[in-house]
């Protein structure tokens, strides 16, 4: 039995599927509780259903992208582990880099199935799990105090700072997007050497097309009173951007 067939064995699917099922159950519990709590405080059920529909459409395309990450990693790690890692806790950009680094640290020349052993595999898996535990551990020990503190500072801050919370959140998100846009611009201009303009312009073109598509969706939603369009605006804009990427090639 080759290592890859061992990694793709029913027992491995059972372990990974079991963990994923537990996480799915946790999501269902949180979802039902939130929905009921929303009704209890008088929130509009239609509004909550809109959030569910919009979040569903929003997620499908990125999830297909993540599925490609599962396929990419399955050649070296089998299918069950990447399936587990990318269904829960993991992140597309994180898994490949950590798996690669961990493989080198355990003595493999890189992440490949030909050199993989059972010990190397379980060690790589443990490294991948341990390195991303920060968020979960911080949540266990600090979220209650942290969110309480955020809540109390919000309620204490009257006057100038009062009502600034929303603007701060939007500003933080603008910072997040700015960092990524800056990265794409930097890669185009200096990615292949300072000011050579030899880097890839595809990400910037994709961003531009997605932004134009979003402008059209928002125009339809706001000016033509087609509010339902907003549910699909992100997914639709992304699809336009991704089609542009295929056309650019």
């Amino acid at each position: 039995m080759t290592i890859l067939s061992q990694l793709n064995s029913p027992a491995m699917y059972l372990i990974c599927g079991g963990v994923i099922a537990v996480v799915a159950l946790i999501c269902v519990v949180f979802m039902i509780r939130a929905y009921r709590a929303g009704l209890a405080i008088g929130m509009d059920a239609t509004k909550m259903r809109r959030v569910i529909i919009s979040s569903t459409t929003f997620t499908i395309l990125p999830a297909v992208g993540i599925l490609l990450g599962v396929i990419a990693l399955s050649g070296a790690l089998g299918t069950p582990l990447p399936w587990l890692r990318l269904s829960v806790i993991g992140a597309l950009h994180y898994e490949t880099q950590v798996a690669q680094g961990a493989a080198e640290s355990v003595g493999l020349s890189g992440l490949n199935a030909t050199e993989m052993t059972a010990t190397a595999f379980s060690t790589i898996t443990l490294v991948m799990s341990a390195c991303i535990m920060g968020g979960i551990l911080m949540s266990i020990f600090f979220t209650k105090r942290y969110t309480k503190r955020l809540g109390s500072s919000d309620s204490k801050s009257g006057g100038v700072a009062g009502g600034f919370g929303d603007k701060a959140m939007t500003a933080m998100f603008i910072g997040l997007v700015s960092a990524y846009v800056g990265n794409y611009v930097g890669q185009l201009v200096s990615g292949e050497g300072l000011f050579t303009f030899a880097g890839s312009w595809t990400p910037i073109a994709v961003m531009a097309v997605a932004a134009i598509a979003m402008a059209v969706f928002l125009y339809l939603a706001e000016k033509k009173q087609a509010a339902w369009v907003e549910n699909f605006s992100i997914a639709g804009s992304m699809l336009c951007g991704m089609i542009a990427a295929v056309l650019i090639g």
């Binding site: 490609l68 595809t202 097309v209 997605a210 951007g241």
Partner: peptide, 17 residues
């Protein structure tokens, strides 16, 4: 290329918004 550019597509849409 479509799947390599999921993140730029997402941030393009969000950036406009």
């Amino acid at each position: 290329p479509a799947f390599d550019n999921v993140v730029p597509a997402l941030f393009g849409a969000m950036a406009y918004k």
